[in-house]
Nucleic acid binder design. Structure first.
Lengths: 207, 207
DNA sequence: TAAATTGCCTATAGGGGTTAGGTAGTTGCC
DNA sequence: GGCAACTACCTAACCCCTATAGGCAATTTA
C-alpha cells in the first residue's frame, strides 16, 4: 500500500473544502480520513485532535479572507473601498460557507492574537481613513462595520430574509449606501440630537 | 422506581437551561437524560430525535425573545423604542447564551413560518414607524437592524472585541445613536450623494 | 546497507444517537 | 374492585465519531 502523502497543510485545506461541501460541523476527522482513503487514526499524526483541525481551518479561512480584503482595498478609498471590502466578506461567505463558518469559531486568546484577525481590524481602520472619525469613534465604527458585515452575511446564509420581497440583492447595496451616509454625516450628527431629548419622530407618533 | 414525569415541555425547558449552562452544542440528549436521572432511550418517547429537541429549544428561545421584545416596545416609540428593543436582544444573549445560540439555528421553511420569527420582523417594523421610511426602504431597514443587532451580539459573545479599548459597553450606545441618526437622516440622504460620484473623503485621501 | 525516522496500520475503548422490544406502574371503564 | 389499555421508562443492540497505544513497513540518512 502506497502512502497517501498526508500533511497538516493538506489536511487543513481538504478539511476546509469538505466544510464548504458538507458544512463546518460535519467536516469531521472521520469524514476527512474517508476522503483520503485512510484510517482515522492516521490523521492523528498530523493533527492533534478534532479541535485542532477545526482551529486550523478557521485560521486558514481568516487568512484567505484577509488576503482577499487586502486585494480589494488596494487602490481604493472612501465608499469605493467600503463597498469592495464588504463584498469580499459577502462573496466569501457565499462561495465558502464552511470556511466562513469556521472563521467564526471562538479562538483562545493566544491563537486569536496570532491569527489574521488583527489584519481585518486594520483594514477596517484603513477604510475609515476615508471618513472623518477620531478616536474613540473610529473604534466604535470598526465594530459597527464588523457587526453589520457579519450580521448581514450570517442572516443571509441562514435564510433569514430570503423569503420576502425585495430580495437580498437589493438590500445589500442599500445597507452599504446607508453605512457610507452614516459615516459621512456622523461627525456633525451627535450635535443634532442630544441623547436625552426626545426627537421628532417620537412626538410625531403621539398625535 | 418512580417516574420522572417527563414531558416534551419540560424536556425543552430543561434543554434550554442546559444549553445556557454548557453551550447549545453540548446540550445533548444524553446530557439531558443524565439531568433527569433517566436512561437516554426514555427521552425518545417525548422527543423525536436530537434535531427535534434542538429545534424545540430554538422555537422556545425565539418565543421568549419576542415576548421580551413586545414588552420592551409597549409604550415606547422612536429612539426610545429602538434602544429598548436592541437591549432586549443584547441582554437576552448575555443572560441566555445557549438559548440565543439556539435561536440562530437554521429552521426548515415551514417550521420557520410557524415560529415567532415573524413577530420579530413585525416589531422592527413597529420601531421604524417612528421614522419616515416608505417601502422598500422599510424592509431594507428591518434587515439592517437585524444585521446590526445579531452581528454585534454575536461578535461580542465570541469575544470579538473584548480585548481592546474602549470596552463594548461604550460601543453599544454609540451604535444605537448611529442607527437612530441614520434612520432620521435617511430620507434626504440619498440625494446628497449620487452613487457614482466620488465623495469628499475619497478625494481628501489623494492629496 | 544498517539505523533511524516517518507514515500509516490494527486494536481497543468510550461517548453520543437511535431503534426495537419489554415491563412495570397508571388510568379508565364495567 | 378488577381487568384492559395505555403510559413511562427500561434493557439491549447497533452505528458513527473521537482518541490512544503500539506495531510494521516504506523511506531517508549516515
Amino acid at each position: 500500500m502506497g502512502r497517501a502523502g498526508l500533511t497538516t497543510e493538506r489536511l487543513t485545506r481538504a478539511g476546509a473544502d469538505l466544510a464548504d461541501e458538507v458544512g463546518f460541523d460535519e467536516a469531521t476527522v472521520s469524514a476527512l480520513a474517508r476522503r483520503f482513503d485512510v484510517k482515522v487514526a492516521s490523521l492523528y499524526s498530523h493533527v492533534k485532535n478534532s479541535e485542532d483541525l477545526r482551529t486550523r481551518i478557521a485560521l486558514l479561512a481568516l487568512e484567505e479572507l484577509a488576503d482577499r480584503g487586502a486585494a480589494a482595498l488596494a487602490g481604493r478609498a472612501g465608499k469605493d473601498a467600503l463597498t469592495a471590502f464588504a463584498n469580499v466578506y459577502r462573496d466569501y461567505a457565499r462561495e465558502h460557507p464552511g470556511r466562513y463558518a469556521a472563521a467564526q469559531l471562538r479562538l483562545d486568546p493566544e491563537t486569536a492574537a496570532a491569527s489574521a484577525g488583527g489584519r481585518h481590524a486594520q483594514m477596517m481602520r484603513a477604510i475609515l481613513r476615508g471618513y472623518d472619525l477620531a478616536e474613540p469613534d473610529q473604534t466604535h465604527a470598526v465594530r459597527l462595520l464588523g457587526s453589520v458585515f457579519h450580521g448581514y452575511v450570517s442572516l443571509e446564509a441562514s435564510g433569514g430574509f430570503s423569503h420576502s420581497e425585495p430580495g437580498p440583492q437589493e438590500t445589500w447595496p442599500w445597507i452599504l449606501d446607508a453605512l457610507d451616509a452614516l459615516l459621512r454625516i456622523w461627525p456633525e450628527s451627535p450635535l443634532e440630537s442630544p441623547p436625552n431629548k426626545p426627537h421628532l419622530s417620537s412626538t410625531r407618533l403621539e398625535r
